[in-house]
Design a binder for these strands. Structure first.
Lengths: 191, 191
DNA sequence: GGAGTATGAATGAAAG
DNA sequence: CTTTCATTCATACTCC
C-alpha cells in the first residue's frame, strides 16, 4: 500500500468509503489473526513446558501476556485446569450434544481425557455444568448501548448488536500474504 | 493453526527452538501490526466519524477499544472502568442490598448506569462479584500486610505433570468473548 | 520506567 | 440447573 497512513500523513485527503471498507476488512482480519496467534502461541507454550526455561524475554508484550501460562507462578495448582487438548475435546463433545452431560457419558469422557492429563469425572461434570450455564448467560449479552450524555465521562459509542458467526475466519486462507509478510511493516497494507 | 491435529495427537513432537524463535518473531510482528492498526484506526475515526455506523462488523470491536479514549483519561482504556458517578451508584446499591448481587436487577442497574458511561451487564455483574469477594477478604485478614499478592500457604500440590495450559482452545465458544466481546478486546492488543 | 497495588475479568468448584 | 464463591490472571494506575 502506498498510502502513508501510518505516519498520519494525509495531506488533507480523507479516505473514501471504499477505502474505509478495505481498511475495515483488514482490521477485521488482523483481529482474527492476532487472536489465532495468541491461541497458537499459548497452546505451544503448554505443549512445550520446557520452553519456559528459555527466553521469556525478547518479545516484550506478547510474551508477557502469554508468559503467565508458563511462568513459575503456577506452583500452587490446586484447581484442575484442562490442558489444551482436553479443552479441545471437551468443546467438540459439547458441540455434538449440547444437551445433558449424561452421567454415563461423563465417565467415558473422563476416561478418554485422562489420556491427555489428569482429570476426574467431577471435573468433567463441572465443566459441562459451567459450560452450559455460561453459554446461556451469554445470549442476553446485548451490549447496552451507551448514550453519551453524562455528567461524568460519557462515551458516545455506537454499538449495534451484530451477531454473525466467524464468517471472516472462513476466508482466512486467502490472506496468507498477510499472514506471513516480510517483517517490513511498511508493506502491511496490500495493493 | 493447523499444526495441531484434530485428535490432539501430539505425543513427543514439540517445536524446535528454531521454530519457536520463528514463531516468536512472527508474533512480534503482529504485535506491531496490530498496534499500528489500532493507532491508524484511531486516527481515521477522527477523520471519518461516520464510520461508526459500520464499524460493528461483527469482529472484534476496535471501536470499543478506541472509543475509550474519549472517556475520563486520555489513556486508551481496554478494560472497563467505572466512572466516578457509576461507582458511586454502584456503591450505593451495594450498601442497600449487601448480600444480593441482583441476578435480575443487574440489567436494570446496567441500564441506569449506561446513562453515565459505557457499561455492560457483565461489567455490573463482575463488579458485584468482586466487590463482595474482596470486602470479605479484607475483614478476616486485617492488617495482613501483603494482602492479595502473597499467596500464603503454598499448597504445593502434586507438581509432577505441570499443566500450564490456560484458556487455550480449539473450540469456538472459548474465544467468543474475544471475537464478539463485550466491550473489551484487551486480550489481543498489548501495549 | 519498573515495582507494587487496585481491580476488572475468567473460570473451576460448590452451594442452593 | 442456577447462582454464588474462591482463586487467579491481566491490566491500569501510582509512586518512587
Amino acid at each position: 500500500m502506498e498510502r502513508e497512513s501510518q505516519n498520519g500523513e494525509y495531506d488533507g485527503s480523507v479516505m473514501t468509503e471504499e477505502q474505509m471498507e478495505i481498511l475495515r476488512k483488514q482490521i477485521a482480519i488482523y483481529v482474527v489473526i492476532s487472536n489465532n496467534l495468541r491461541l497458537l502461541h499459548h497452546s505451544l507454550s503448554s505443549f512445550n513446558p520446557l520452553s519456559s526455561g528459555m527466553n521469556q524475554t525478547g518479545l516484550g508484550n506478547f510474551d508477557q501476556m502469554v508468559a503467565s501460562s508458563s511462568g513459575h507462578r503456577m506452583s500452587t495448582r490446586q484447581r484442575w485446569n484442562p490442558t489444551s487438548t482436553q479443552l479441545k475435546i471437551l468443546e467438540r463433545i459439547y458441540e455434538e450434544r449440547r444437551g445433558t452431560p449424561d452421567p454415563r457419558r461423563v465417565r467415558e469422557i473422563a476416561k478418554e481425557l485422562s489420556e491427555h492429563g489428569q482429570i476426574t469425572e467431577k471435573n468433567v461434570y463441572n465443566w459441562f455444568q459451567n459450560r452450559r450455564a455460561r453459554s446461556k448467560r451469554k445470549q442476553p449479552q446485548t451490549t447496552t448501548t451507551m448514550a453519551g450524555q453524562a455528567d461524568d465521562a460519557a462515551v458516545a459509542t455506537e454499538d449495534e448488536e451484530e451477531r454473525r458467526s466467524c464468517e471472516v475466519s472462513g476466508g482466512f486462507e486467502s490472506y496468507d500474504h498477510i499472514l506471513f509478510p516480510t517483517p517490513d511493516l511498511g508493506n502491511i497494507f496490500i495493493h
